[in-house]
Design a protein around this nucleic acid. Structure first.
Lengths: 215, 215
DNA sequence: GTCTATAGACCGATAGAC
DNA sequence: GTCTATCGGTCTATAGAC
């Protein structure tokens, strides 16, 4: 992405004042958007956080909305990759989950948790989008596509006989990924649980249940 | 609440222009806050939605933030009642759930779903609060208190031996009520599922699991 | 009880100096 | 690459007429 030159071994600082690159500004912006909300965050707030002034921000970025769009694209690209891979395996390819819809669903849950943890800031932003602009509406459309694919994956697992059929698959999908997505509200990478522990807990609860089985 | 007079059988319109009372304005405000976000909603938007002008709003309401605070209090009062009742039953009273922590936990989940459905607009608003003002910080504090009581209830059920103990109770609590709370993002009262169906699906998934048991 | 009109503050974004 | 200064617009909230 950042082509600094043909012979530059490391992307050293270009020239002039120390400064920030677009990536560092984006990271700080997303953190602020999540902490205060997108609309409640002004470009002035962002400038203060970075220790520079408002016009200096606009030297690196064309608009506040562009920062939002880049974060949403990051989250959507990652989640789309997870869902697409699972759907491809389902089309006949030899996946690592044995080829059953049930195995693919468990895989998608686990990989979704990994994406949520690794890209928590941008995914958090994505889950809070309301559709107030073209950028947000486009993100909501991509999200709806993801939700549809996930619902289809659940429906496949039910049709396969692996999941209980006394709850509508569409409802199962909403609740299952509602639980997964709720991660962004409280998970902290430096907290008590690592990614595998959370993914394991979610799959244990969702697929095997909380209650002890007397069998 | 609205004492219009000593002999008024129904709260007829007081006098003068048709007008709105504070309750109708609050309902419209919360609906807008949820659709566009609190910060993205201006008092002018609210006035347009109600078919009057901005200053007319301020005749009934002292500030935009007061509307937010009233909605948050509504949600918090309802949720506090659910949690308090369950904790009281646990203190020795004869609850309708057999007196076990497991039964009380199932009850709290079901009643939480009922509150989320019956008070969806205000609960939705509560779940999106970021802490940007004194009103929001106070709401977050009350929310934290609720979360602590729910976590204690889960811990009781684990200690009782009714729930699996290979997942930390605090993690179980977060995920379980994360699933419950995710309702507000998609549930519609006129949709395909009624309250009992959703509550049943959540308890079935969370306690018994999605997978068919081969026993 | 609703209106017109406006105050005072802050917003996103830009111009131009250095 | 960052700055000071500012434009045009929108915001919450208020004053005062009817």
């Amino acid at each position: 992405m950042t082509t600094t030159g043909p012979a530059g071994p490391a992307p050293r600082r270009r020239r002039g004042r120390p400064g920030y690159d677009q990536t560092a500004i984006l990271r700080a912006a997303v953190e602020l958007f999540n902490r205060k909300g997108y609309d409640a965050t002004s470009v002035g707030d962002l400038a203060k956080e970075l220790g520079l002034t408002k016009p200096a921000i606009y030297h690196h970025v064309t608009s506040k909305e562009q920062l939002l769009g880049q974060a949403l694209d990051d989250a959507l690209d990652e989640l789309t990759a997870v869902v697409t891979e699972a759907s491809r395996e389902g089309a006949g390819g030899a996946g690592n989950a044995g080829g059953t819809a049930y195995g693919r669903l468990r895989d998608v849950v686990r990989r979704s948790v990994e994406v949520l943890v690794a890209h928590q800031p941008s995914v958090t932003l994505l889950l809070r989008v309301r559709g107030n602009s073209e950028v947000e509406l486009a993100a909501l459309e991509r999200r709806r596509w993801l939700d549809d694919r996930l619902a289809a994956l659940v429906a496949d697992a039910v049709a396969e006989g692996a999941l209980r059929d006394d709850v509508p698959p569409a409802l199962v999908s909403r609740l299952l990924f509602g639980m997964v997505n709720s991660l962004v509200e409280w998970y902290r990478p430096d907290g008590a649980y690592d990614t595998a522990a959370v993914a394991g807990a979610i799959t244990a609860i969702a697929f095997d249940g909380l209650a002890r089985h007397e069998c």
